[in-house]
Computed example of a mutant assay.
Amino acid sequence: MKFKIDKFVLSIILVVLLAYIFPQLGSTSSSIPLDSIASLGVSLIFFFYGLKLSPEKIKSGLKNWKLHLLVQVCTFVVFPVIILCFYPLIHSEYDKNIWLAFLFLASLPSTVSSSVVMVSIAKGNIPAAIFNASISGLIGIIVTPLWLGLFLNTTTNSYNLGDIYTKLIIEVVVPVILGLFLHRFWGNLAQKHNNYLTLFDKSIILLIIYKSFAHSFEENVFSEIDAFAIMTIAIAVTVLFYLVYFLTGFISNKLRFSAEDKITAQFCGTKKSLVHGTVFAKILFPNPSVMGIVLLPIMLFHALQIFIISFIATHAANRKEENPIYLDLK
């Protein structure tokens, strides 16, 4: 079985390398207004996100409430609670920053496009996947800052929840609402050109990643992070993924979900959105040099989840219908 390396993952690696070689373009003294471009780009991302959301599909998707509840609880409660268990192990400022980066990862919403694509490949419940992936992004606008606020408020005066939500409302909520309002006029057009919009989304994400890492390299933020530390973070995100994946599968079996619903629960409940992570980090962490560390776990998790779920989805697509426990890969 052949696996293709995701082009977006390769693009991220290239952008980080460019930030290391040419950090001056992303510095505060740069003549290119990357901050303004990124802020405008973030607003457009969420405008297009709202434009593609169908209010009718959201309403009809509410029927399978047990599945939706499981996915959202795993996404916004189970992930953060697992990370909270490691809070007593923090002994230094470096440990605190890494732990906050993991808490940020854990509190993010699920992905949209990749979740739906993988569920489709695995022959799961596609309408439920679309509903959960879409609604997860809206919930994350409220929940992600709340989780971070519980700990950042105690350590820094620069994190003001009121200011954060004001910025979120201006850059995220208003564009989403405007997009939803215009869905009936331009929704079909947005769906027709979805590939171009996805390319735009990824371009803005790469721009933010470049600027964040350029600042981080200039400030020597990664001086304490060596190859061993990166390997440790990679192992940690792998363990985190599998913990939630098998827990979601276990609960799905207890709730007697169909094979299709179990696929959706495990695929949507274990994903984390790099798109939301990047744009939220830009708002939640005003210091651009800190964003490099904050984004490191989610970037590793993003690459990991694509590889693992691709393998599982391909395996699931070839399952025999009489074998309902195929997702456990026994």
Rank of each mutant, 00 (worst) to 15 (best):
C74P: 15
L67W: 01
F250H: 15
K4C: 04
K202R: 06
Y159N: 00
K282Y: 14
L70W: 13
S107R: 09
L255N: 14
Q305M: 09
F280G: 04
M118E: 06
S115T: 15
L89N: 13
N318F: 11
T264F: 03
I325N: 15
D95W: 00
K63Y: 11
I21G: 10
L108E: 06
F280E: 10
F3D: 07
P297L: 05
Q266Y: 13
V279M: 07
S203T: 06
V279C: 06
S134V: 01
L17E: 06
Q305N: 12
F200L: 05
K96T: 12
G140I: 01
H193V: 07
H68Y: 01
F307A: 07
D163W: 10
F86R: 13
H193E: 06
V237A: 08
L105Y: 12
G179I: 01
L197K: 09
Y245G: 12
I308F: 08
S110C: 10
F185D: 13
I121V: 10
V290C: 12
L69P: 09
L295K: 04
L103C: 07
F76K: 10
S120F: 15
L51H: 00
N188L: 10
L53Q: 14
T238R: 08
R184G: 01
I235M: 11
F222W: 00
W99Y: 01
K330M: 14
G292R: 05
E56Q: 13
N153R: 04
V275D: 01
K192V: 03
T314R: 12
I126Y: 03
N157Q: 04
F222E: 00
I263R: 14
N97H: 05
I283H: 05
V78W: 15
I139E: 12
S158R: 09
I37F: 03
L138A: 04
D6S: 01
M299Q: 08
M299H: 01
I12M: 00
E93N: 01
I135Q: 08
I308R: 06
H276Q: 15
S310C: 03
